[in-house]
Design a protein around this nucleic acid. Structure first.
Lengths: 206, 206, 206, 206
DNA sequence: TATGAATGAGATTTCATTCAT
DNA sequence: CATGAATGAAATCTCATTCAT
């Protein structure tokens, strides 16, 4: 039972407990005591490490966004080829990564989405992320089609990804990641169809 | 000041006040007192007419869903032709109807989406609606394509509609309905392209 | 048990309860629950009527200061003669008025004195009052002696009054008002001795 | 960094830090952590050296009273003459000594005054001190006037000293020691005037 | 029908203290 | 000797709901 250097351990523990609590009962019913119980610590320590409940929620959202960014980045760094199709495919794969799709992360994310409409700090995090998805997609589409069409393609694919994700989070059975990826990739092929020789078949990850 | 027959008036007044409050500060900060203030009545009356806060929230969500159903139904009843394209187009139009797209309704809806994950009553309402969108789309797609492909088309278009809607609700500038409709109709044309002579141009309803 | 128009009644009730609580256990140990118990109401109502604990404390201090001002004013309004001695005598009497000298008011006042050093709102109230005492005394002394001496006389008498009051509040037996008045009046006579025919005897007002 | 013999150093360090903290934010907001931060040590150590917060507060008050006693004693030991006027003058001087008049000590003292009303331990310290001031003054006055008048003189001068001190501590500009001493000495001359050849002029010290 | 007075449960936060290292 | 991790009690405030008028 080490008594020093606990800070990073406790912070991670509490962030995980926050996701677990939101997954369990929803953001509205997530109290510091419930989070603390999940983490096996006392409630007071949350203020100690995060300055208060809001600090912990913000840290949790930040973690989720970081995980997403990493999931995308890692796939894009290990691509076989540098084609737009490959990059966009990696973005799709990253967005349906296991980390994101797991119950706790998914519900936490949707909860934050709703909450961010009225909390400036969360809204900022949210917007940075939204914008990055759009910008990345747009950049790749512009390599193969006129700019105005690339913008629409990016908007459409971003909407498709978020829509699949949202419907999955809401459906009682949870998100079917396999199916979601298939639909997203199919849509991507349709978007690229007019400008580029299609890949042999929709590539669902590999 | 008649003392009888106030019920329907008060109920509507309070439902509108609820949306206004959620639009203003979000579901989490929406207290019965704030709703009452918006409606210009006292807080106690909410329990009188709706049995409590939850009853009012449920009634409010029901209202939003009813509005959506009506917006779609009205368009489908007045179609020029009975083609799948026309029906699906009407569904798209209905989903981006002004009632849905207006600030209060949009934010209220997203708030309920998140909330419904952990409130069985809201979840039921939510699911009925989701399923109807999917079923309706599926039915129309099946008229022009194999069943398995129709299912995917329906899933894809439903995701697209919800995704556009979600991203619009979250973006600081609000939903650009014109653009959203254009993207949805464009996607619809792509889905139908292989099975059917395309319409002359994406129809944004105007 | 009337259910309307309770506000002024409850406010007074709670202010009195606050003084009682401070008298009983001191400001530091005065919790809203203790105050509420003294008033025979629930704790939540304090926030309802005063916006919170601080609001109630401020209102209580305001009440004490108002009582003091009134006690002085009433005596000055009913003076037999308009001499400086009479006016200053009335100020002394007012400051050792029963309202001020009673246990609860006295301890509450001292508590606020200490507290006011670090609470701007209380400090403002405190200063207004201090300054009024000094200004009033100074004005009267100036009628019979050179201005520079009048200022010193006013400072001295103000200090004497507060000092007697303070030592009385702190002494285990409480303030002996009779003795305090006698000492203050005696000091007043000494201050006036060089400028004015002394009154026949120190007037303790009986 | 010697590990032994730290006790007296740490104790003094913490007592000074306590006064600094009280001066800064008032007794009510003085937490052990703030004191520890002022002293540059960890909070836990306070319990180690003083048994807890109360022990530290008591030690701090004791220190202040000791400082006052010493300030008076030192002056009385170095008097030119043994007259009552000289002794009482020394008492006045001691009471407006720099140690007492400095911001931290002054505010700390007033805070303890208020606090002592409800803390028996502080009250005892407080009373011992009050009584000593009165007894010393009384003893000297009795050398030149009838006992009953000496008692009143002692009460009056004690009140004057405390009153000047109190008003100084509360005034936004702090205590003007020069002026306070002048007023106290002037009052002393008035008290002695009838029994004793006055000193050539009010003596404000040195 | 409608109000506003009032309650009591619950949530967050602060804080002194203890304890293992 | 000293730290900082951790707890648990207590305090304030908010809020949905009830009830007498």
């Amino acid at each position: 039972m080490p008594k020093v250097g606990m800070e990073p351990i406790r912070r991670q523990q509490l962030i995980n407990a926050t996701m677990a609590a939101i997954d369990e009962v929803g953001l509205a019913e997530t109290t510091v005591m419930r989070i603390a119980r999940h983490a096996g610590v006392s409630a007071g320590i949350i203020s100690h490490y995060f300055g208060g409940k809001d600090g912990l929620l913000e840290a949790t959202m930040r973690q989720i966004l970081t995980d997403l960014t990493d999931a995308v980045a890692i796939r894009r760094r290990t691509l076989d080829d540098d084609s737009p199709r490959a990059h966009i495919g990696a973005i799709i794969e990253g967005n349906f990564d296991r980390t994101q799709v797991t119950g706790p992360a998914a519900k936490t994310w949707l909860a934050f989405w709703a909450s961010s409409m009225h909390k400036p700090m969360l809204q900022r995090l949210q917007n940075v992320n939204d914008r990055r998805l759009y910008t990345n997609l747009c950049h790749q589409f512009k390599r193969v089609m006129p700019h105005s069409e690339a913008r629409n393609a990016a908007r459409g694919l971003a909407a498709m990804i978020d829509g699949l994700w949202l419907r999955g989070a809401l459906s009682p059975e949870g998100l079917n990641a396999e199916e979601a990826r298939f639909l997203a990739h199919t849509y991507l092929e349709q978007l690229l169809a007019n400008y580029d020789a299609p890949a042999s078949a929709p590539n669902t990850h590999s």
